[in-house]
Write a protein that binds this DNA or RNA. Sequence first.
RNA 1: GCACAGGUGGCCGAGCGGUUAAUGGCAGCAGACUGUAAAUCUGCCGCUCCUUGCGAGCUACGGAGGUUCGAAUCCUCCCCUGUGCA
Length: 316
Amino acid sequence: MAVVNQLPLLVVLLGPTASGKTALSLAIAKRFCGEIISCDSVAVYRDFEIGTAKPSVEERAPVPHHCIDIVSPERDYSAGDYQRDARAAIAEIAARGRLPIVTGGTGLYLRALLEGLFDGPHRSEPLRARLRRSAARHGAGWLSRLLGRLDANAASRIHANDTPKLIRAIEVSLEARRPITEAWTAGVEALSGYRILRIGLAPERAALYQRIDARATAMFERGLVDETRQLMEQYGAERRIFDALGYRQARQLLAGELTEAQAIEAAQRGHRNYAKRQFTWFRREPEVRWLAGFGDDAEIQQAAMNEIAAKQDIPQ
RNA sequence: GCACAGGUGGCCGAGCGGUUAAUGGCAGCAGACUGUAAAUCUGCCGCUCCUUGCGAGCUACGGAGGUUCGAAUCCUCCCCUGUGCA
């Protein structure tokens, strides 16, 4: 039975923070001649090391990694940028005949990559600044009322307290001179040309939380606070990137708002909460082969390998 | 030992005679999410039951009594905790 014109395989590894995605991705890459495309909104930034749990330089040496350390922290990066960068990387890898492995925790980025984003304008900082100022003057509900006038449907779908989403919807409606609903319904361009295998890591919640706590503590022990201080001096403490987990708490510690013990506790909690949100997000992801365990576990790795091997052999 | 200040739901912390199962916050659980997403936001959150309802019952504000139509809130005694004086 000839396997002709079979589309290249794309492996997508998803799961909450600290579930062992990195270990599993490295094992898969080594076994199947793969290259890794990180799907992580913080790991894209250079110089953010300790708090991001990026794979180390040694870990990255034997396996090519993409979408890590690709922008300077003084630049803003977005889901749209990621969509372009990741798709380009996947195309190159596949063209080389190697296996692309997307490893991700950032749900929105993964969706942008796989399903696409609607065609909308870039962010406009001046407009955003004006909206925020007006919102501060007019009080709660103002942004929602404004959006209601621009696009009643969008206003009904975005909660009145969800400022960032309201602002984006208003921005799109104003900049594009048409309601964001129209952009939504125009459809998105999903990634095509690949057979996608989604493997999800779903370790037991209590065990995951334990790992998260230990890892957050370790980040502080390894110098997260110093790294944060240095990065803030270098790039400016106002950058939104310092709201990222761990860095936010380190910044609060430096500002004297928290003791070290409180900062560590807050970071642990933040990561736990994040893991929970990731579970919520990924549960909706279609066609995921869920594995109940950690990615560094030998049995789990074997199970993942089997999934991939099976998929490789099956003609489409 | 005496004098103050306190002991409230898993934690912190309001309430100080009646719309009080008890404001808030945290934790927890569930959910949303279309270009800053490790961000932001929503719901539930004493227990039990069901016809899942501005439903029914039960148990709750350190303990035991008391006052009152009615108490977490007032009184008495006791037990703890903190601070000050001895």
